[in-house]
Nucleic acid binder design. Structure first.
Length: 430
RNA sequence: GACCCCGUCGUCUAGCCAGGAUAGGACUCAGGCCUUUCGAGCCUGUAGCACGGGUUCAAAUCCCGUCGGGGUCGCCA
């Protein structure tokens, strides 16, 4: 029998890390087994379901590369649920009350053989009846879920651990309706650093937010993969494609995993580092434009800027801060540079400016040669001139290598900014 | 409270099912090196089998209990 799995988000909120990971594992199981992956939009709550959320969910899944073979909307299937409920009434398994329909069941021990957790036994259920059709004629979650999973031929229900306690109720419904019971796999939850569910404040932000901060999809997927699953060979960097070959649902762990932004950042920095410059530049261009940081930019120049920073940023967002001096010259010298600026080297920097003026080909090798010679002639240690020069060009104490930075900015800009520093000192000491 | 799930460094994990060497890796952190700076790179280090009992020549691994954490108990999904 062909494997069919599904992801069933409710468009009553944005897709967040937890949902994305559930989807990822469900998708992986289908793809690993040459099966099919179904997306089911659980939009039975018409009040709370919003088109905006739906769009965001679809967009985020597509972004991550999780494609689906079929898509269904529960809001289009109300007659099906009603029909099944009436069938239960006819068979005496359900009854109408207060214009709702209740499923009546009797206590029995239920065993579930979970693919991740093994045998789970439920000794008792808290109730003996369950609403299946609400008084507005829309189905309740458990009812619609069972009918759809059965009718859509879902063979493996892969979902979050928070659904474990729904499982016995659902099994009772499968039996009453005469459907085959699928295999279940309950994924551990993603926890916040305080323990407990991911909160709005931490981690439960939408996937869109992560994209806006400049996380690469590869890094995000990689991180999600590592939360509860491992390739077992000490690899940390692994692609979706590689995972698709070796993934086994049985290898998924049982323990809740605390979300770590530190590790995500590290992974993201690794992916940024490894991404080909050309490709990364296009990504950065698109990103900075979307963010409204730049309107247009010369791609050749941007490529140089990207090469300057790609090894030292954790996310594309960092560029807005660290590389701002490459796009704008209206920065101020940061507080952290005060110590460096204390020493007035206006005379020396004037000499430096004159020496740099004479360079024909303003590349980093040539700049470094002249720079070092100037420092030596002035009786300065190289670093004594490097530090203020960096402040002059970037406004900061730390940054990429000075000579590379100079080459990227170009002669004219470098001379201009060095001149500003001279002026700054002169005014400070006037 | 009831039912259910889970417990290896601060965090993510390998090892557990098929018991045997100094419990391995990654992030973070600390220190060092490099050096023109560093939030980059390289190296080193700190840190863990929740606890108690049992089985066994031998327990992170098997069994029981305790404690701890989490989830669910809606005409939400």
């Amino acid at each position: 029998m062909k494997v069919r799995t599904r992801f069933a988000p409710s468009p009553t909120g944005f897709l967040h890390i937890g949902g994305a990971r559930t989807c990822l594992f469900s998708w992986l199981y289908a793809r690993k087994n040459q099966g099919e992956f179904i997306l089911r939009i659980e939009d039975t709550d018409r009040e709370r379901s919003q088109k905006e959320y739906l769009e965001e969910i679809l967009e985020s899944l597509a972004w991550l590369g999780l494609d689906w073979d079929e898509i269904y909307y529960q809001s289009e299937r109300f007659p099906i649920y009603l029909e099944q409920a009436e069938k239960l009434i006819k068979e005496g398994k359900a009854y109408s009350k207060n214009s709702a329909i209740f499923f009546k069941y009797q206590f029995e021990k239920i065993e579930v053989d979970d693919l991740i957790r093994g045998k789970i036994e439920f000794k008792e259920l808290p109730k003996e009846e369950e609403v299946i059709i609400k008084s507005d004629k829309t189905p309740t979650y458990n009812f619609a879920c069972v009918i759809d999973d059965a009718l859509m031929g879902i063979t493996h229900v892969i979902r979050g651990e928070d659904h474990i306690s729904n499982t016995p109720k659902q099994i009772l419904l499968y039996r009453a309706l005469g459907f085959d019971i699928p295999q279940f796999a309950h994924l551990p939850l993603i926890l916040s650093p305080q323990g407990g569910r991911l909160s709005k404040r931490f981690g439960a932000t939408s996937l869109r937010e992560y994209r806006k901060k400049g996380y690469l999809k590869e890094a995000l997927v990689n991180y999600l993969l590592l939360l509860g699953w491992s390739p077992k060979d000490n690899r940390e960097i692994i692609s979706l494609k590689e995972t698709k070959e070796i993934f086994d649902i049985k290898d998924v762990g049982k323990t809740g995993a605390v979300f770590s932004l530190d590790k995500l950042n590290w992974l993201n920095s690794q992916y940024i580092k490894e991404k080909p410059l050309e490709e990364l530049t296009l990504l950065v261009e698109k990103y900075l434009k979307e963010e409204g940081f730049l309107e247009s930019i010369d791609r050749t120049y941007l490529k140089k800027v990207v090469s300057l920073f790609k090894d030292r940023i954790a996310k594309l967002e960092d560029l807005k801060d660290w590389a701002k001096f490459c796009f704008y010259d209206n920065f101020e010298y940061q507080e952290e540079t005060k110590e460096i600026l204390k020493k007035n080297l206006s005379k020396e920097v004037r000499v430096l400016i004159e020496d740099l003026k004479n360079i024909g080909n303003f590349n980093k090798e040539e700049v470094e040669r002249i720079f070092r010679a100037t420092a030596e002639n002035l009786g300065l240690k190289n670093r004594d001139l490097v530090h203020p020069a960096r402040v002059a060009l970037t406004g900061r104490r730390v940054g990429p290598g000075l000579f590379e930075t100079m080459e990227v900015l170009g002669k004219e800009e470098v001379l201009k900014r060095l001149g500003w520093l001279v002026k700054y000192w002169e005014e400070e000491n006037a």
